[in-house]
Nucleic acid binder design. Structure first.
Lengths: 186, 186
DNA sequence: CGTGAAACTTGCCAGTGACAAGATTGCGCG
DNA sequence: CGCGCAATCTTGTCACTGGCAAGTTTCACG
């Protein structure tokens, strides 16, 4: 598994990000320990600092990766707004660790160039789905509609992840999300 | 301000919660330091443990307080679903520290009895607003509608707090929320 | 081959949460 | 009135964390 050569790990940056993803899934993004990541990767406790500077740097890289994955997921369901919303919720549940980092900007460098670019790609994918549906409406309407669509999908995803939803919604996030999101497009 | 008598502070529990609220507003719920709270209250570093057990215990108390405040805010706008949604967003922005703790169950004891009761009161206030509006519809519709209303309000609030919304939404959360929430009740 | 930079290590410091044991205080009960 | 006991708070300690500094190993490139 860990093909660790002594010194010059070779792919430490990627290994640390993978370990971080795993650790975030286990203990949440706030309780992440750089020293734990170093142990998982089989390197010394100060090695992560060399690649990411500090904890915020590492989480910045993770968030940027996450936004790119989200953009990709949204693009694939681009033609259908409802399906894009379902894809959004599905992403949050399936890639929970990414999602939890992405929307906790106090944990990373929100002004990082790469992150901003990735976030922009995800936002564009979202907006293009709304624009396709609302057709030739005024831009202001598209703005408001995409905000509403984003809000309801994001809200449902967040509540789902927080375990705040009542039991009766079931255990299938895609299905439950579809029922709720449909309320918007009537 | 801090009317500290030596030993037997008299109101340490309340003082610590107030300090915690302030600290969470400054550094977020995850970076909260019990020792810092103790310093703010003018007591020793181990005093908080006596009242709350550990950090999770303190955040549990804070979350329970928050859910009660939210229930109160929602009840006051009970007759109008749109206004209840606006009140929800307004609560999140105005009582940001509470809100941020309430929906991070990994930081506190989600099985605490007092917390569950408070959360139940908030949920009931939310559902009663939806039921009042949807009139005599089937219960399943009310369920789905309240989920949708909760999702869109919660999503907008969360995105607002995360600073994820584009600049063009302006700086007035109530107004911006109203425009978005209206999309649901057409 | 050899030199300078990149990658990684070791060692350290201040800060944190949790626990244990002791000091102080006030309250109920005789 | 006073005495014992429990609640409250303190002091001391331990393992752990993030970040910094300085040293060591390896690689890339001339």
């Amino acid at each position: 598994m860990t093909d660790t050569r002594a010194y010059h790990h070779g792919d430490l940056r990627r290994a640390l990000l993978a370990a971080a993803l795993e650790a975030v899934g286990e203990v949440g993004p706030a309780a992440l320990s750089l020293r734990d990541l170093a142990r998982r990767a089989g390197v010394s406790h100060a090695a992560p600092a060399h690649h990411f500077g500090d904890k915020a740097g590492l989480l910045t890289a993770l968030a940027a990766q996450g936004f790119d994955l989200l953009a990709q997921a949204l693009t694939e369901a681009d033609d259908d707004l409802l399906e894009a919303g379902v894809a959004y919720v599905d992403f949050a549940v399936t890639h929970r660790a990414y999602f939890e980092v992405m929307f906790r900007p106090e944990l990373y460098r929100a002004d990082d160039a790469e992150l901003i670019a990735a976030r922009g790609r995800a936002g564009a994918a979202l907006r293009s789905g709304v624009a396709a549906l609302s057709g030739g409406g005024a831009p202001a309407d598209t703005d408001r509609d995409s905000l509403a669509a984003w809000s309801i999908a994001h809200g449902f995803a967040t509540l789902w992840l927080a375990g705040a939803l009542p039991d009766r919604v079931g255990d299938n996030p895609r299905e439950a999300a579809r029922a709720v999101l449909r309320r918007l497009s009537t």
